[in-house]
Design a protein around this nucleic acid. Structure first.
Lengths: 196, 196
DNA sequence: ATAGTGAAATACGACGCGTATGTCAACTTC
DNA sequence: GAAGTTGACATACGCGTCGTATTTCACTAT
């Protein structure tokens, strides 16, 4: 079965993204060598520049992939909950926990914004943001929240969550600090609830 | 008057930091050339590496300076308010507004964390964080807040604020969006208030 | 079967960082 | 006050990297 060109190209894209993910996570964007990275999967920079345009292009693809995985996982966790409000809190906590992964931190939280610019302008339209904005909008429709701008609320919530994760991960005692972060996050979030 | 060695060295440090601030703001950390930067103030890389060790060292110095200015301004604004709670809200809003400055964004919010790592580990111990943590602690003593970990609360608040600013600045209509962001921030923050 | 396409390899130029070495002015010590 | 010493800064170099221009060659379509 002579692999068609389309197939091999797709395989190569996958390989390169995987290699990029690994290299960016381990060395950081700046220190990741495209020569090494491509050689690791039996290719050269030629393939990379053909498929992704430049180094940033590869990072964008990697970020997109991780971001998608995070959104999917958050949705899954949120869905386990019946109450919409509890669901959103759970999603937030999930983001905090996911952001403890060094890979996520280095690539999505640190290098991503620095190299690609603000997440809301990413081509992939940061899935995480979109997802939490959806949740906020649903809660707004139910009248469960104070009148706030959904996009603003989503930005603030995700900003708080991801920043919390950065702090937890950098702390000396991550395991001990994590619950504090989640607790504080849920207190904060409750500020959005409508008074009754 | 033959300038003493100490004097000229101090002058050079100041010049280099100023040049770094400008170059990092305009081109971003990665694209800023140390050759250009130093030549702009009539020096060479020799001076830079002697004074700051490496490129990161200069960035750290620049970040430290800006961070200090921000904390000072926030304190000033917060102080205009009598009520401690209102004061903290004002500080938060001030951070959001300050972070609209492209210089602050590029250097402190994007490149800073990516190159130097998490702010809480910065040598200068991020003044902004320390300041808001202080505020939270004072409010806690008064019993105005739910029982939360002050450090966690501070991290979340500043994370939310700074992230909001990133969003506002990247939006198409910053002036129109800013009030929404501040509004949402104050709603969120109110989640920390003790129930009564 | 043959011409053509385009994915990937190879070769090249340029640039930037960091360091090792050199130099000269400012301080010190006798 | 003059020789010696320090140290701030300049200069020169090596190394690695990115991005592009050119080339190769397998696959496709007629």
């Amino acid at each position: 079965m002579a692999k068609s060109r389309q197939e091999t190209m797709e395989e190569n894209r996958v390989k390169l993204i995987a290699a990029g993910r690994k290299a960016f996570a381990e060395k950081g964007y700046a220190a990741a060598s495209m020569d090494e990275l491509t050689a690791d999967v039996g290719l050269t920079r030629g393939a990379l520049y053909h498929n992704f345009g430049d180094k940033r292009g590869l990072l964008a693809a990697v970020v997109n992939e991780i971001d998608g995985e995070m959104a999917a996982r958050a949705k899954e966790i949120g869905g386990e909950n019946d109450d919409a409000w509890q669901s959103m809190l759970a999603e937030g906590a999930a983001y905090i926990e996911m952001a403890l992964d060094p890979e996520v931190q280095r690539i999505v939280l640190l290098d991503g914004p620095a190299v690609l610019g603000d997440p809301s302008k990413w081509p992939s339209q940061n899935s995480c943001l979109v997802a939490t904005q959806r949740s906020v909008e649903q809660l707004l429709e139910k009248g469960a929240l104070k009148p706030v701008d959904p996009e603003a609320a989503a930005r603030l919530l995700s900003g708080a969550a991801l920043n919390a994760a950065l702090w937890v991960a950098a702390s000396d005692d991550p395991k001990g600090v994590l619950p504090k972060a989640i607790d504080a996050f849920q207190s904060l979030a409750s500020g959005l609830l409508a008074d009754r």
